[in-house]
Design a protein around this nucleic acid. Structure first.
Lengths: 181, 181, 181, 181
DNA sequence: AAATAATCGAGACGGTACGTCGAGTCTTAAT
DNA sequence: ATTAAGACTCGACGTACCGTCTCGATTATTT
């Protein structure tokens, strides 16, 4: 019985590609990142990239997920109001200034033109973010600050929707006034 | 009209280009539309396009604005609640199913990678939409259903933000429950 | 009525490509010549080459024909024997040491793998050479040294065949002894 | 056998490779034969090929020599004229229609671009053919039909040169008229 | 009405990047 | 030690569009 590659893909190459992609988006912006550029920066052959990924967005999804595994903790401030406020401020910081946020915005942008990417975005990335967005509400239910049958996903959409809208669409700054749902 | 046409007959070409661009986005999707494709479809030379526009998004902004001049009227239903509900349902229809909405989503998507486009989007397209979004609230102020010093832009963001968020980001359907702000 | 390109292809580009191809074959040998290399050397875009030629051999045929237009004169020595001897020595010089001969050998070699090239070789290049090869025999007929109904093409094959055979196949030097048909 | 095989079972692999190479040249033509294709067809790893051969032409030389060991006998017809005529007809058949002839033509073609191959061709393959080509002349010397000091190699070149010339260069059919040296 | 000058459709041009192919090298696990 | 498998780096392939250019024809003002 023969069964394909016995030693599998090169982990070193994989990491170099993800790192290079992340770096390049931060340095020159998504639009000017090319597969050839990533390959060159990563010291990897183009063919190796095409062997494992289908497009530059495919790489960036992997890169985003790999990074997202890290940052997890959400401090418990004791009350729903302050918890939520802290979380939303953290969200704004993520969307507007972090490198990961830049990747996220680029992916959401590209997903408007690419149904396949939209699918991956919704099945692999958004659940990660949604889980974090739910935390303040779930704590509030535990504490009894919200009713046990509250529709948390709806509440999350109403809380983070306007923030995404300003960041992605209007470009207006997210003011303190908006952070009071 | 922000460009010359002092001689020659560019108006026919201009309209053919805008129409071709709109059609192509509807037919094959923004990502596969090219300047060459638009030129071919419009029966126009590439150079003619480059004389008047800087990119395919530049064309689409013009096309969107030209279309948007048309559809204007917002029926007055008599009360704030029904007015707003009717408007939001119309907004969902625009974003999710209309050709113009497809162009809008593509432009917002591309604006994530292109600061110049983001600028045009925010200075030429969003004000048109914002004006319409404000109507129900302004009528409510007139009727006395809302206080005269209400921050209408903030209220608009809270009303349409979650809708845009679902359409552009999560892809979740916009349910009746969400249309109750 | 519209009728395509009014100014046609760039003669400068054409000549630069033919020259670059010739030079590269002489410098690095046919096997290491690439389309990209020719394009780079000629200062021309790859697409320009692919617009007008189908392969590197296609370029070389054109280059060979362009060169062959020049060298024409065959001195008349007065007698068949010396005419033929002079011509065959010239042929050996062409095949063994000239740049054009190197191109010819490469084309004959490649024609063994490429029926399309074989066709072009036989319809465009060989007639040029054959015309020259016939001259000594035709003069001999004129002078009465050969009968008027002599099969000149057959005589040519018997005269030049062994020379080509040594150059292309055995690699043995073409000795004086061979030049006595 | 000019290589090791001191351990392992390379002999099966060796034969599979030579057979696959021969078959592929016959099926798809020399130009489209690749090392990967040979490996795949032979059920052998690419590395195994590179361990024992340096190029696809290197394989084909081995394959040709292996085949050539077989067909040997040249019928003695009793007289120089018929002997030679029979041999030349056999040569034409070999060059024009046999699989081995196709390999031979491909190798001669490739040798125009590859000095290393030219060397192997002249040291390993041509002597085999030359030996056969000499037979009719050597018999004629034995019979006294040719003088004992005849330069047989020269006579061979004059007999087979025009035939090779037509097959490799002009593509003209080898007519009966040509077979009268 | 003729002369003038910007614009037109067409498409060749120099480029950049694409996604694919095969070359030749390497590492691994199995024999 | 050699094998089959296949991932690796590398170079070139042939293609698609980009944005610029030149051409000869068209057309609307200007003279």
């Amino acid at each position: 019985m023969h069964h394909g590659n016995r030693h599998g893909r090169s982990e070193a190459a994989r990491e170099a590609v993800l790192q290079a992609a992340d770096d390049l988006v931060a340095e020159i912006g998504y639009a000017r990142v090319t597969i050839e550029g990533i390959a060159g920066r990563a010291g990897v052959a183009k063919q190796t990239i095409y062997r494992w990924w289908r497009s530059k967005t495919d790489i960036l999804v992997d890169a985003f997920v790999a990074d997202a595994v890290q940052e997890l903790t959400l401090p418990d401030t004791g009350s729903f109001g302050t918890d939520l406020r802290a979380h939303l401020e953290e969200l704004v910081r993520f969307l507007e200034v972090s490198d990961a946020g830049a990747v996220f915005r680029a992916l959401v942008g590209q997903a408007q033109h690419d149904p396949g990417l939209a699918l991956r975005l919704r099945s692999e990335i958004l659940p990660l973010l949604r889980a974090r967005d739910r935390v303040p509400f779930e704590r509030a239910v535990t504490r009894g600050e919200l009713p046990a049958d509250a529709d948390i996903d709806l509440l999350v959409d109403r809380a983070v929707g306007p923030i995404h809208y300003r960041v992605l669409v209007t470009g207006a700054p997210v003011t303190a006034a908006l952070l009071d749902a």
